[in-house]
Design a protein around this nucleic acid. Structure first.
Lengths: 224, 224
DNA sequence: GCTTGTTTAATACAATTGTTTAAAACGGTG
DNA sequence: CACCGTTTTAAACAATTGTATTAAACAAGC
């Protein structure tokens, strides 16, 4: 007797998430959402005013789920920065490539990244910028403060770009490789391992570059 | 007397390119295209059958323009592979981030990458796979054949990912950085330079990894 | 000049969209 | 039971879409 009467608002929010994520704002229809939520067609306008307001609330919901779904692990004072960076990348890839029941939130957030609306600014402030700031601190630990700020940000972008690639261009990757090749060498764990190794090498090289330019002559070990 | 009578077909193709690129297939309307082309509404169906056929022909046109717009430079036998890789990256970034009058073709192709339709398979075969094969040969020159094939492909994906990032998430980058910061350190040339340095360091490290694992024990079986 | 095939034009059509409306159903409260 | 505010329902509305239709304009050949 307690669950048969669920709030219509909640039913709408739950039903709208996957639909918006799959179809996008424009192609998603109020009729399909209401049908999936098993409520009357007029309910969206009754409870949310219009379709766009419903969308904004769904985005907010997706943001909360995205954080709680794949949280960063706890670190102690002497956790090495390389370990932190690995955790950070793992978390990012998990959030981006996560599959399963709740993956609609990832898709929806990615849609906002690819084609920002007014909701994206909210995501930047509440989700992206804090997450990037964490990576920035890690890189500061690894690189030291001789490397200028914008160079760290470029590295963060390069890492995030690789994670994003497999989410965004997954269809292309499937078309480029055979499907058996993809299943062999492109599961989530191997993708993570490659991104980490690739990026860590580049970062370490950046550090050496600034080290050697500081010492100038004595260091003969610049890696390239 | 010669130019006042342009083919209606061509007018439609030229007008449809920017519209499809800006709005996407679904949101682009036949009415807007016909209005921009200054032809009658029924012309699309008369010359192309339906909207989708027009779209396919526009994609084909975009592919041709994309290649001719930013071609790869000519190489001689003794062009060093690092130079080739730089040319390759420069070409890819130019094709992806290219602005100006003809940039609608880039946008349109990127739309196909992000959400592949049947037209994408054509793009893979005619545009992406040949271009990736070139990079694969370059990396083979740099890395040698001790590095397995899929590792080269992972590197290519990582490079392409970084190029794609600034095209795909340009709006996000603008939101994350201040606009003045973006204009300072994120113009095309600096993006290219960073991607090159970042990726080349990672690739060289990969080479050293396989070199050392080869030398340290004569048996070549101890990869994992 | 008339005929014939091709192109252009204006309009109509059927389907789908978000939104509104007005009445019915519901749930307490006196 | 009667009343009243809230919620739900079915239907309608206005706008927009791709496409079809039908007739007019045109060009070319005889």
């Amino acid at each position: 007797m307690s669950t048969i009467k669920i709030n219509v608002r909640e039913k709408l929010l739950e039903a709208a998430g996957p639909v918006f994520s799959e179809k996008g704002f424009e192609k998603a229809t109020v009729r399909e959402i209401c049908q999936k939520a098993d409520v009357n067609l007029a309910s969206v306008n009754y409870y949310f005013g219009d379709k766009e307001q419903l969308y904004l609330e769904v985005i907010c919901l997706a943001k909360q789920m995205g954080v709680s779904r794949a949280p960063l692990p706890e670190w102690t004072e002497n956790t090495p920065p390389e370990q932190k960076l690995e955790d950070w990348v793992v978390t990012l890839v998990r959030r981006m490539l996560g599959t399963g029941e709740l993956s609609w939130s990832n898709h929806l957030i990615m849609r906002e990244v690819l084609r920002p609306t007014q909701a994206c600014e909210h995501l930047v402030q509440e989700l992206f910028r804090p997450f990037v700031n964490i990576a920035d601190k890690i890189l500061l630990e690894i690189l030291g403060d001789d490397v200028p700020d914008y160079r760290r940000m470029q590295c963060i972008f390069s890492i995030a770009a690789q994670c994003q690639f497999y989410r965004v261009s997954g269809g292309l990757v499937t078309l480029m490789l055979g499907q058996e090749e993809q299943k062999l060498h492109y599961n989530t764990e191997q993708i993570i391992e490659h991104i980490l190794q690739f990026s860590l090498a580049a970062i370490k090289n950046l550090k050496h570059e600034y080290l050697s330019s500081e010492i100038e002559s004595s260091s003969s070990l610049n890696r390239i």
